[in-house]
Design a protein around this nucleic acid. Structure first.
Lengths: 233, 233
DNA sequence: CCCGGCGCAATTGTAAGACAATAAAATAAT
DNA sequence: ATTATTTTATTGTCTTACAATTGCGCCGGG
């Protein structure tokens, strides 16, 4: 039937058809799809349009492609949620890049305080988690260079979220950190010190299972950015 | 770090360079990029490779393209996030392993309970938020079709997170929902009812400012998936 | 002076054909 | 039987060409 390809972009239409192919054919990860030539012929479009579609799907990890092997349905290893690349680029997405400073701060608070119960639980089982965070904070204390300090500070918070074992949140957190970097550069010396002490209190509280106290401390710590960020604009 | 193992496709390299263009140029949504021809020349590749990259980014909503208008950084209508298409295609991803299922559930709990204080605050200022959620839940109550029910259930949770005003979290949540779609299909009739009642209690508690009670209820609601997901495998 | 229609041209969208690069499969050699 | 080599199927990239869309300026009329 003449499914009126009403001036949608062909590559989008093709992407949709490929999606149908996978769904209706009950294709599983690793299964092969027809070749680009066949797809082009079957859909009545040029190979260019097919390629633009498969590239987009490949970018999402839905498809994989290799010479001679052909197109295969992407295999997802969800243990390390393969959102890696997607999230990397999603940082450019207006939903994030357009967000206000306050939104970003609040978002960070939600994520970082949200993982604390999980961190505390895992910390109780595995002392090396506490030790790792503490060591990171000690290195922070010995740093005098601003750039190195920023890097370590990011590493500390990353490690904190990572320690929860919730990989997706760690990925999301990374995106947010990119946007915080610029604000960190305006940090004053006195605030370094305060931040480090704050980190220290947080991990001790976590080790002792005092999650809500740790949450409160972390919230204060992150929200201390608010005043500075506002005055900057 | 590991990404150099696989041979880099040109279109991927180009995508990365475009990303740098946006980041380093501090381009905002709506801003124009160089034309495809210019990009091709600047990167020393053919226009085809540039197009494959821009298509992929366009698919994610990071870029928009139109004849004569050129390439522009993606824009969002009315502040409403639209990762609809991305999630639709990520939904192609097959079943999830148990360990990560639990991760996903925990992640959802963190995000959704984390936004509740914000939702409650905004609800107090704007009664239409409560009304909107309530209406959505009522429609859920009247639905007999499974597919429609799933759609509405997703809409409810999406709306809930959106109501916090934290756009980045709404975006993250969308991605997670894509992975949940699959499990929703195994929901039993009795559970619909329970879910709806749960929704109802949550929004009433929020309206009354009882945030922690709402959190507890929401956590139970989401975690009710856990048992089912495990027994399925 | 303003204003609406109209055509031009810039830019993306699509096509076809060619060749390079890669890796799987088939074949030959030890 | 195992290893090395050749063949071949398929994606990766380039080139050129043309179609489709639409923003912008031009032109004429009120």
């Amino acid at each position: 039937m003449l499914e009126t390809i009403e001036r949608q972009r062909l590559s989008d239409v093709v992407a949709a058809k490929i999606r149908q192919l996978i769904l209706r054919g009950h294709l599983k990860p690793g299964d092969r799809l027809p070749t680009e030539h066949e797809l082009a012929e079957r859909f009545g479009v040029s190979r260019v349009s097919v390629r633009e579609a498969t590239k987009a799907l490949g970018f999402l990890g839905v498809l994989e492609a290799a010479p001679r092997r052909g197109l295969t349905v992407g295999r997802v290893d969800l243990g390390r949620v393969d959102l890696g690349r997607v999230t990397e680029y999603l940082g450019l997405h207006p939903a994030v890049s357009d967000a206000s400073s306050e939104q970003l701060i609040d978002t960070r608070v939600v994520i970082e305080t949200g993982v604390l119960p999980h961190v505390a639980r895992r910390m109780a089982e595995d002392p090396s988690i506490h030790e790792g965070l503490r060591a990171l904070n000690e290195r922070l204390r010995g740093t005098r260079d601003l750039v190195a300090w920023i890097e370590l500070d990011i590493a500390f918070h990353r490690r904190l979220v990572e320690s929860s074992g919730l990989a997706p949140l760690a990925a999301f957190n990374d995106i947010l950190q990119a946007f915080f970097q610029r604000f960190r550069e305006s940090v004053k010396k006195a605030e370094w010190r305060a931040g480090i002490e704050s980190h220290g209190r947080i991990i001790v509280l976590l080790r002792d299972g005092k999650v809500s106290a740790a949450s409160a401390e972390l919230r204060r710590h992150i929200e201390s950015h608010k005043a500075r960020m506002v005055e900057e604009v």
